[in-house]
Design a protein around this nucleic acid. Sequence first.
DNA 1: GTGAATGCAAAACCTTTGCAACTGG
DNA 2: CCAGTTGCAAAGGTTTTGCATTCAC
Lengths: 160, 160
Amino acid sequence: MVNSLRTDAQGREQLAKSGYRSTPQRRVVYRLLQQNVDHPTANEVFLRARQALPGISMATVYNCLEALVQCGLIRQVNLDRTASRYCANMDEHCHFCCECCGSLFDVHCASDAVRRQAQLPPGFQATRYELVIRGICATCAAERRPQREQRPEKAGAPVV
Amino acid sequence: MVNSLRTDAQGREQLAKSGYRSTPQRRVVYRLLQQNVDHPTANEVFLRARQALPGISMATVYNCLEALVQCGLIRQVNLDRTASRYCANMDEHCHFCCECCGSLFDVHCASDAVRRQAQLPPGFQATRYELVIRGICATCAAERRPQREQRPEKAGAPVV
DNA sequence: GTGAATGCAAAACCTTTGCAACTGG
DNA sequence: CCAGTTGCAAAGGTTTTGCATTCAC
């Protein structure tokens, strides 16, 4: 169950709180991320946004994503050195990355317990814990295929 | 205490096991990573390797790093979309990234307990758990400075 | 009205690739 | 000997930047 999705008005307010304006481009990008739970890359966001706003540019997509990340409406997920992915689920969760098909899944994780496992040296102050799990997703496991080229075009279904 | 550092002979053997040759470049890169516990980037490895091998090229550095990663002598650490960093500590550990100075520290972490916290959906098989902790390191905390531009030139001391 | 955001193009950044020459086992 | 490795240069994918124009507040 995802609780963190905001209405247009809430989105506008959250942008304003951080000094950002609500523009058509930002609204389209945010709505698109709310509706597509498959963690698209900036380029995928660009392609989808262009359906609603044919004139939108890549630079604007990056600008919108940056604004939405900064004001806390979405989060950026970086795995390896592949293109960043974006996620409108702000509930606490971690990510499962399928080494077979490359899909990304949201996974529930009791973060308090994770926190307690890390033995920080004296004086260190943690602000954020990010857990990434790698493995084989149910679909790929069922297909019993050996590991092969990633198929990043396949979208991962959310699991939270 | 780091147990995973290999002698030259062990390194050669581990490379051979995966079908790689032991070359002067690979030996220099591996030794350099063993001696510098600050998680250098490929470019930093290049600059340091050039002191021993003035003719070494960036492409070769990447090739060496790839071979060393593949045969299990070093690991690659990717944070955000900054340049990959490399680490000769193969003991089980996670990473602490200082949001103030950008340094990377090895941190001991009881991974079995972390594993138990993630609630994988049925059919999902996990092979690897990667925990990244972000926060303020002891040095930056002591300086009591507000968060500012990262200073990636400052090397992080190992903490394991 | 005014500062912020957009769109375009060019550049930056990190990494990979193609290929001829060289070399380790 | 010969597949694997090196070094060079060029290209690749992702993201950022500069700047004139447009727009949100």
